[in-house]
Nucleic acid binder design. Structure first.
Lengths: 189, 189
DNA sequence: CTTGCGTGTGAACGTTCGTTCACTTATAAT
DNA sequence: ATTATAAGTGAACGAACGTTCACACGCAAG
């Protein structure tokens, strides 16, 4: 029953990008009085599903709009996953994106990074910067063309290295400009 | 200048999980009048950064709380990425999670799926279900133990197959119970 | 049957919201 | 210097918000 409310809040929040007002919850939960809503909300606050601002405004708390995190696969986890004994939750945006304004997503074209287990068609989260360290995977412009490779640096010398034996390292003739470093790889099935 | 406002709204929203009120924006933008805020907001609405509900409430629109998606790496993209000519944006949660309530995150332990380019330490988004198709990557319980493997099915016969030559296929002695199928792989650097 | 409690209803209340008005200050053009 | 335009201030407004009354209903225990 309380899970019904939770689910409804959940889908309302993802659809509307904000929590509903009490009046909206009335319709959402099929009540005819805001007071009935207030009691339900109070219980959800106690249960830690939602919380209130310093302004008294409703905001999603743990378990709402977040993904449950379990342990590792091999380590084994409770067969009845309903009883979430490890109740860590994560918001994917917060988990993956540090600097929202300088991060963008990119589709990987080609298999030049396949030995780093980045496949053709994978998505990549890149963060704009020109400060790369040796070993970082970067998006770089070399002699006017863009590419994704390992960034290598030894002393003054700077070059790019693919993660695929069939490709050769790239030593810039004129210019090597790092535009972003790869922070995450995402693959959808 | 307008980008300042955008950034501030952005970080307010990710921190507070809601948009600020006009009074809060006053402090946020260093105004002394709500009217000044109202004009800024109007311009941001025109610019498509934010929008208003059917209830007149402020909600984030494109570019806010979403990640910019550019084309593919090799295909090349504008060097000045500021001028976002391809203005596709994506919300990571919406992008990766279909059924929020039955999805959970799991850390990969071991390299048994390495040939599918899923590494030890990668995160995996799994969706609880028992309907797997031949070729799906699944989380399954075989004879009491949990594992992540390819799900294989030929006629009545059902078994699990690793993506690593050093591991052998698993033919269940007693029971093979699929608990979830893997919908996405996430790797952070 | 009666009592008590949980749950829902309906109305009233003060607060805060976003909007709007008249006015002032700053910037730039003539 | 004068004017026009843009941008900010401060106060006032009705509307909607969340809260809190008193009251009605249903169900289980005594």
């Amino acid at each position: 029953m309380q899970n019904d409310y939770k689910d409804k809040l959940n889908s309302f929040y993802s659809k509307n990008k904000r929590m509903p007002t009490y009046t909206e919850m009335m319709k959402l939960f099929s009540f005819k009085s805001k007071n009935a809503v207030a009691r339900v909300v109070d219980k959800m606050i106690e249960a830690g599903l939602v919380a209130k601002d310093h302004l008294g405004r409703l905001i999603p708390d743990k378990f709402l709009n977040e993904v449950v995190m379990l342990g590792s696969v091999k380590a084994g986890f409770p067969s009845d996953v309903e009883e979430q004994t490890f109740n860590d939750t994560v918001n994917l945006d917060d988990f993956l994106i540090e600097k929202k304004d300088s991060t963008y997503m990119l589709e990987v074209d080609g298999d030049s990074m396949i030995d780093a287990h980045i496949k053709n068609g994978d998505m990549v989260l890149a963060e704009r910067t020109n400060k790369a360290k040796d070993g970082d995977i970067v998006i770089a412009e070399v002699d006017g063309e863009f590419t994704m490779k390992y960034f290598k640096q030894k002393g003054d010398k700077v070059w790019l290295e693919p993660a695929n034996k069939n490709f050769k390292p790239i030593y810039p003739k004129y210019d090597l400009k790092v535009t972003a470093i790869v922070k995450a790889v995402i693959r959808k099935y």
